[in-house]
Design a protein around this nucleic acid. Structure first.
Length: 351
RNA sequence: GGCGGCAUAGCCAAGCGGUAAGGCGACGGAUUGCAAAUCCGUUAUUCCCCGGUUCGAUCCCGGGUGCCGCCUCCA
């Protein structure tokens, strides 16, 4: 994680370059203040009409800049905690310059994707464009992904109003982290998301199904009927892959991509998969999980005692002593272990 | 006041001119020793409202209403 304060020299390089190009200027007229400003390139993202912006009343220090659209690259305020020496006076970096400096350091003059909250479109991101493009003469960013905000139960999520919720609190309540992840990614990034318990619960059920599907595939790949991957299955996977990628290519249409997964799951669940089929599907899911990151990492294991109980129950079932087998099942359920009988033998998972 | 975004079933959510994906929930079936899991079926005739364009609009245009963001020194 780069820290802004460690890139002051790189910021200085940009500021110097902008001054030399005449894109920025220094102000020394107002008291001891010395400022450099670059004119904003703008309206590029926000679509704001600059002349109208000038009419806006909230420009307090108009005297210091030539036009309201200008912004400070370097500021001077003896009372500020952070101070650096610079050719244009002792002071500290302006608002936006650190982003240009840091991104340039690591990603170069031009990079592909810049994300951020929609509240940063103006002025922050437009200032970044102005600085970076003014300095390099090249296109700064190819694609901007501006995420809409998160609301909580219909209210704006705001610390100042106490309307906040932290993932760690949800986890403490017993919500599975993967459910939170799935829920958050299920809404398109440009769509404002209203976080509700009800929707979280729904998302939780959905991802649970997906995880259960994955689990059953592993079981199948191991203990299911012998056989190689059927053409029908392979074709389904190929089709799903194409649709999945196409959905994400379309401005990250995650909802569409998720629908592909559910469609596929339903189709495959209706088939009697062999070990080869299951292995092929698992391969597909592993690929998809590079996007989702929801599949469990590593194998889960059972305590020896639970393992023994399961064997015990199997024995009871074989002699059709359902009373005993059900008792063991309930016992394990109370411990959070769910047992599922299948033609390939019993399967378990943690609740 | 200005600029931008959004408004789809009980809930969440795709769709971008050809007559409404998917998920959750609910209800009814199938399967199961009983469950769990799974499958099948049902669940939107004003897609916020009013006009317009079009053979045809949830999708385009105009006008409303509501919600969100921004309109500068916090990045």
């Amino acid at each position: 994680m780069p820290r802004a304060t460690q890139y002051v020299p790189q910021m200085g390089e940009i500021i110097q370059g902008l001054l030399e190009k005449g894109v920025a200027y220094q102000r020394t007229a107002t008291r001891s203040t010395s400022r450099s400003r670059a004119s904003r390139a703008t309206g590029k993202l926000s679509g704001k009409v600059l002349d109208e912006l000038e009419a806006g009343a909230r420009v307090a220090d108009e005297a210091r800049r030539r036009t309201p659209r200008d912004f400070a690259l370097w500021k001077s305020d003896p009372h500020h905690i952070q101070q650096w020496d610079a050719p244009w006076g002792r002071g500290f970096p302006g608002w936006h310059i650190e982003c240009s400096a840091m991104s340039r350091t690591y990603l170069g003059d031009t990079f592909d994707i810049h994300t951020g909250g929609e509240n940063n479109i103006f002025p922050h991101h437009e200032c970044e464009i102005a600085q970076s493009e003014g300095f390099t003469g090249k296109r700064f960013v190819n694609v901007w992904l501006h995420a809409a905000h998160l609301n909580l139960e219909g209210e704006k999520m705001a610390k100042s109003e106490g309307n906040v919720l932290y993932p760690k609190d949800l986890v403490a309540e017993g919500v599975a982290p993967v459910a939170i992840r799935w829920y958050l990614q299920s809404v398109h990034y440009r769509q404002p998301m209203n976080f509700t318990r009800e929707a979280l619960k729904a998302a939780s059920s959905g991802v649970e199904r997906l995880l259960n599907f994955h689990d059953s595939l592993k079981h199948r790949a191991d203990k299911g009927p012998e056989g190689v991957a059927a053409v029908k299955v392979v074709e389904s996977l190929d089709e799903a892959r194409v649709r999945y990628v196409a959905a994400l290519d379309e401005d990250l249409n995650v909802a569409e991509a998720n629908a592909v997964l559910f469609d596929l799951m339903r189709a495959l669940n209706a088939m009697d998969l062999t070990r080869g089929d299951a292995a092929a599907v698992l391969g597909f899911l592993t690929d998809v999980d590079q996007v989702l990151g929801i599949l469990p990492i590593g194998e889960e294991s059972l305590e020896a005692e639970v393992e023994r109980k399961i064997q015990e129950r199997e024995a009871a079932r074989r002699r059709r002593d359902f009373k005993a087998s059900d008792r063991i099942r309930d016992e394990l359920l109370a411990k959070g272990i769910v047992l599922m009988d299948s033609p390939d033998g019993v399967r378990w998972r943690r609740k």
